[in-house]
Design a protein around this nucleic acid. Sequence first.
DNA 1: ATGAAAGCGCTAACAG
DNA 2: CTGTTAGCGCTTTCAT
Lengths: 329, 329
Amino acid sequence: MQDVARVVGVSPMTVSRAFRNDASVSEKTREAVVKAAEDLGYVFDSTASTLRSQRTGFVAVTIPSINNANFADTVRGLSEGLKPQGLQILLGYTDYDIHKEEALIEQLLRRRPEAIVVTGGKHTDRARRLLANAGIPVIETWDLPDHPIGHVVGFSNAQAVGEMVDHLVARGATRIAFIGGDADRDTRGTDRRLGFIAAMQRHGLDATRLVAVGAPPISMREGALAMAGLLDSLPDTEAVICVSDLSAFGALSECQRRGIAVPGQVSIAGFGDYEIAATCVPDLTTLNPFPHDIGAKAAQIIATALASPGCDAQCIKLAPKLISRASTR
Amino acid sequence: MQDVARVVGVSPMTVSRAFRNDASVSEKTREAVVKAAEDLGYVFDSTASTLRSQRTGFVAVTIPSINNANFADTVRGLSEGLKPQGLQILLGYTDYDIHKEEALIEQLLRRRPEAIVVTGGKHTDRARRLLANAGIPVIETWDLPDHPIGHVVGFSNAQAVGEMVDHLVARGATRIAFIGGDADRDTRGTDRRLGFIAAMQRHGLDATRLVAVGAPPISMREGALAMAGLLDSLPDTEAVICVSDLSAFGALSECQRRGIAVPGQVSIAGFGDYEIAATCVPDLTTLNPFPHDIGAKAAQIIATALASPGCDAQCIKLAPKLISRASTR
DNA sequence: ATGAAAGCGCTAACAG
DNA sequence: CTGTTAGCGCTTTCAT
């Protein structure tokens, strides 16, 4: 900055102001500064700016996996909402593991983000403490925690799957199975399974057709394997709800391989409204949790919370929408 | 840090050393420091550390879209390879736009990353200059640029698609179409289309069955629309190569909707070896560009380059593997 | 509209 | 194994 200042013939302070588009710098000076910087190959150093101003411009975000279109949509929504605020996302992956999440949260907080957005409402005690004491807005997403740490933008995974059960029951199914969610790592998957069991019991139906699959991410292959097991062991199953559209598509593919009609013989439903659900044949009945909106609302909350630090914690409850398609009768 | 030092009864310097696991701090002291910090709720401040030590621990990474399993795999490979080096990814999205890429690169360089990994080999002049002058290892990926800025981990998109043409021709197809890649934003898609044209001409075949789709990301829906157009306008097409597995799956779905046999009437091939290619029925012939390996090799290059700053630029050329499956005869 | 002085919270360098 | 001193490159604050 001193070098630039010398070339332009001003003080470093003026260069600093010019780079921040401070109104008190004359347009002429600003242009001269930018030109000199470009000529010298000077690139502004955020690390120093950050230390002195105590503003990093980071929002920390944790998601279970980078390879998941739903979470990617949430990150996009966040990103779009934060950019006009001059905030940038610092992203980390938890691998669906709350212990990795704890380590990740600590690592992220060391970078002094101005807010933090986490996926899910279940954390280790230490992670909860770190978040609560960080002195920045905390937003839990994709869930409705019983004891929120700060703000919440989420929905009830259990209730959403309950609606899917209602949908299938209304269409005459009684022997309904659930695929996925038995790994205690994927808490949202587990919530969905519990929602399935509760809803089935509410209808007085047998809620024991549960196919556990391995550790998350539960993907297409696992869905196909689970469906194969189900067709072998409980061939009279009328409908299957899968923990996500990806496993639902795997299940559908397995049926196609075996020549089993969907929805003729078995109905299949998913979760997430991934692009594949709208594309495949038959297209998949699913639940759309509005992942992009989750990110967008979180960005709004951050804007509000940073503008008025004392404000109350918000809890925005979204209602996933059931999309009825050809894979269920 | 001073507060922690006071509680433990040592100097801030010792606390600093304890937090960096400096070997010269006794185990007892280290434990006392960690405990005191935990009790006080002290969280190490990387922003100050970064400024003084001139080491941010960041590796900047640009990808076209967060919502793409191939690029996500590359980021995973990078992430896994960088973690043991104590490096963290600072990720940004270019939206398949080299002007957004330029702005993004500048923004990322301000954070003083220790290396930068970019997707693709086509950049604005200013972006090239910024990268070349950054004084850190630069790695271009997913492409083989004619004039690399620094290191390269990539493959020839054109050549890979050429091999797919060979594969189809060897199986008797002559009327082959290409879907995608006509938007000049997606340079890899364009390279694939050019590779298609070159290979067709090499075989003395008509290379005009090109279906342009909109701006990237070209996804399932666009693939289905393109296939619909193709089936309407050129119904004697024997085989279709799609710019990615996602559009290939869209194309396959359109065929299924119309009752057109795949591969009986039309063969379909994709690119990327996404999970869907192995799952769908019929499963899709495709090219696997080893996206995870790209990230892993880039991480290795970074390790080497940071260890020996003067070393030569590496160019690691990968060979995408043709996976022959049921969607092509 | 511009400048001077001080300092953000840590660590390099050196000393012992 | 531990401590002292100085300073990383900016920006806050105050002055003009």
